[in-house]
């Protein structure tokens, strides 16, 4: 296997291992649109990173975490961040990022790469970043799993049961922010949410417990990465979209298989 393909596979599998389980919590808590909003904001983070002359992914992490905390704060006063607010934030930030990018004519930024991912171009440093992010996400998920599952059932009930709902909510938002940053290189801003939602939805019919669903989601995510990268290599197709097409195909198969039962 060529080294760049090995690097791509390494980064992609790390992403799948974290995004699958995290994606389960995202769909249980109906946060898919929140993830999408953060992903759109991430492009602004790239611009901030470039403007500050730091590593763009550091800018992405900073902006995503800031936006996640901002949204967590607005939710804490009782008013839920509505989908329209998230939509305004997402597209406002994406558009601002695009406008700012166009003014920086001296800096060469691979816009298509950020929007749709360029996994074949990841360096070993990028792969290490994705691995670090994935391991952190999995550890934090594991440590907070009881509270997070209780909250997926009902937040009020979880609080009466003694779970620290406020903390777990912030942890969850930070995890989504971190995974968005880790996923950007692989599938890009526009397709990040797919890696969270699709493997989880594919895993649902096969699972009787939350843990089973998280495990299956990781497996389906990894399969999508492997199939997508292979197809991208064979047919010279863009890698990020190929991975997402593979994830969507796996979802359709799992649906068809359950329908026949």
């Amino acid at each position: 296997m060529d080294e760049f393909l090995l690097r791509a596979m390494t980064a992609g599998l790390a992403l799948a291992a974290a995004a699958g389980p995290l994606g389960c919590f995202v769909v249980w808590r109906r946060m898919a649109y929140f993830g999408d909003a953060l992903a759109h904001t991430a492009l602004l983070g790239v611009v901030v990173g470039v403007l500050l002359g730091i590593w763009p992914l550091a800018g992405v992490v900073a902006v995503c975490v800031a936006v996640a905390l901002l949204l967590a704060a607005t939710r804490q006063d009782g008013r839920v961040a509505s989908d329209s607010l998230l939509g305004i934030l997402a597209h406002g930030a994406l558009a601002l990022g695009l406008v700012l990018l166009s003014t920086m004519d001296k800096v060469r930024v691979d816009l298509m790469g950020w929007l749709f991912g360029d996994i074949l171009a990841v360096s070993w440093a990028d792969a290490a970043f994705v691995w670090g992010g994935a391991v952190s996400v999995l550890i934090l998920l594991w440590l907070n799993r009881r509270s997070l599952i209780a909250m997926a059932v009902d937040e009020d009930l979880a609080r009466v049961d003694g779970h620290d709902v406020g903390r777990a909510r912030i942890v969850m938002m930070l995890l989504v922010a971190l995974s968005v940053a880790a996923a950007m290189k692989v599938v890009g801003v526009m397709l990040v949410t797919a890696m969270l939602v699709m493997p989880a939805a594919t895993a649902r019919p096969l699972s009787r417990t939350p843990e089973q669903m998280a495990l299956w989601a990781a497996i389906f995510g990894a399969a999508a990465v492997a199939i997508g990268l292979g197809a991208s290599w064979h047919f010279d197709a863009p890698s990020g979209p190929s991975i997402v097409v593979a994830a969507a195909a796996l979802f359709m198969l799992s649906r068809l298989a359950t329908l026949r039962r």
């Binding site: 249980w28 209780a150 059932v153 009930l157 049961d161 003694g162 649902r204 699972s207 939350p210 669903m213």
Partner: peptide
């Protein structure tokens, strides 16, 4: 405190058996 909320809606997307739900009472 044992709390029974007025309404609890558990979405089909969450695989959770009654056994697990009861055990989660802690």
């Amino acid at each position: 405190i044992g709390y029974v909320p007025q309404k609890l809606s558990v979405d089909r997307i969450l695989p959770l058996s009654v056994r697990r739900f009861l055990a989660m009472a802690g």
